[in-house]
């Protein structure tokens, strides 16, 4: 199905963007991890979101989500792995599925953690970010899963289910991937296993990995006053654009990004008529 706007990320910025796309009468799909995996979920108390004192992060997230749902936003649980624009449409790969939209709002939060030694070098030669995409190529072979979220465990189970011999590392601190032409082994926190594949399952992809050519400054997405990035039809909001990494700032930016994306989609729709 095709949407006017697709929002990457279901935290305060993404939900605010979705609400405001709906307020402009446009269709919107929010693609996100489960709500409980949002870093805000674990905040005991958020005291500086105006007019809503004494609420926990989890309560805020639930209110935000319900508001966007009631406004008619559609939701899909999953992780966006790649994007490409063709003929004024953005195609978004979500696991092994695909959705498309006229405009995108990137609100995926901060990608925590640096890349491991060997990760970039062996990408596509044993290193993968998607179990459901590449798992079939590793049937009956040893693989390691480096899991950084609860959903990563499910993906590891999927790999076991199709016949991969899986070693699971739960939130390892330091890893090194090595081999010759392709991956041969991975060492995590002192433990070395011989594997043909390494699946790195982080909660969020770095913005520049999702969007080749995206302008960033010190790791944060560069945006203008309309929250537009340097890529046509791509807007960004929330923690991924920089600090302060706080709820009110994310909600405000999400509002602007949502309105800008809705206007962009409306203009494209008008032109194509």
């Amino acid at each position: 199905m095709s949407y006017d706007v697709l929002v990457i990320g279901g935290g305060p910025a993404g939900l605010s963007a979705a609400l405001n796309v709906r307020a402009r009468g446009r269709s919107v799909l929010v693609v996100s991890n489960p709500l409980e995996e949002n870093p805000l979920w674990r905040a005991e108390k958020v005291d500086n979101h105006l007019g809503m004192p004494d609420l926990s992060g989890a309560e805020l997230l639930k209110y935000f989500r319900r508001h966007a749902e009631e406004a008619g936003a559609a939701f899909l649980e999953g992780k966006v792995l790649n994007t490409v624009r063709m003929d004024e449409t953005w195609y978004v790969g979500i696991g092994s599925d695909m959705e498309n939209a006229r405009a995108l709002v990137l609100a995926g939060g901060v990608a925590r953690g640096k890349k491991y030694p060997g990760e970039e070098e062996f990408l596509g030669r044993g290193v993968s970010y998607c179990a459901t995409c590449d798992g079939m190529l590793y049937r009956n072979r040893p693989v390691a899963v480096l899991g950084f979220s609860d959903t990563a465990k499910k993906e590891a189970d999927f790999l076991s289910g199709i016949g991969c011999d899986v070693t699971y590392f739960d939130r390892p601190r330091s890893c090194t991937i090595s081999g010759g032409k392709t991956v041969e082994q991975v060492t995590c926190d002192g433990e070395t296993v011989r594997v043909d594949g390494v699946f790195l399952l982080r909660p969020t992809m770095a913005p520049t990995d999702l969007f080749p050519g995206l302008a960033v400054d010190k790791g944060y997405v560069t945006v203008d006053r309309k929250m537009a990035t340097n890529l046509s039809g791509v807007f960004a909001a929330g923690d991924c654009t920089g600090g302060p990494l706080q709820v009110s700032k994310a909600v405000g930016e999400g509002l602007i990004a949502g309105q800008s994306a809705a206007a962009f989609a409306a203009e494209l729709a008008r032109k194509s008529q």
């Binding site: 790649n82 994007t83 490409v84 624009r85 063709m86 790969g93 990408l123 596509g124 030669r125 044993g126 290193v127 993968s128 995409c133 590449d134 190529l137 590793y138 032409k181 392709t182 991956v183 043909d196 594949g197 080749p212």
Partner: peptide
């Protein structure tokens, strides 16, 4: 040695000289 798809391999008279892994414009 295709370990991730899509992989696009470029060949001259049957000899690989370049490849691109993943979705690209």
């Amino acid at each position: 040695g295709v370990m991730s798809i899509p992989t696009v391999v470029f060949l001259k008279n049957g000899r690989e000289f370049d490849r691109k892994v993943g979705l690209m414009p």
